[in-house]
């Protein structure tokens, strides 16, 4: 009886923590991205995916040796970006930007975006709070 109760309690606790997570983060930053792999580059927006639960910015980045790479940058929800003053139309293809973020753990050309800077110096914080992303830390160069 004690054992049955212990198992039931464990199962309950596990599922409780499972849905508590669902309420505020879609996937934890640490599950996908590496805080020790910061990226910083200049690029041109090729596509903006204004979708839930995360928006994605597709950026063409010119490498130092002239090669071009496609990067996908994860950002907050449409609602989060909207509250910061951005709409679907703010990040049109062709816009030149600088991206600060953290690369995916698997080494692919994906990153969790932190800051986006326009040519005129305006900044947009891309992150969604509560994901565990190191968004408060300013990267030291």
């Amino acid at each position: 009886m004690q054992k049955t109760f212990a198992i039931a309690a464990c199962a309950l606790g596990f599922s409780l923590s499972a849905w508590a997570g669902a309420a505020y983060a879609h996937h934890a930053f640490a599950a996908e991205f590496d805080a020790n792999k910061p990226v910083n580059f200049k690029g041109t927006i090729t596509k903006m995916e204004w979708i839930n639960p995360h928006t994605w910015l597709h950026v063409l980045v010119k490498g130092p040796n002239g090669t071009a790479q496609n990067w996908a940058i994860e950002a907050g929800t449409p609602n989060v970006l909207f509250r910061r003053g951005f709409t679907k139309q703010s990040l049109l293809p062709g816009t030149e930007i600088v991206i600060d973020g953290y690369q995916a753990k698997d080494g692919s050309h994906r990153a969790n975006g932190r800051d986006l800077t326009f040519a005129d110096g305006r900044k947009l914080f891309l992150g969604s709070s509560g994901t565990g992303a190191p968004y408060e830390l300013q990267r030291t160069k």
Partner: peptide
Amino acid sequence: PDLASVAGQ
């Protein structure tokens, strides 16, 4: 594999 082009989820 073209991980960057279709990352949306």
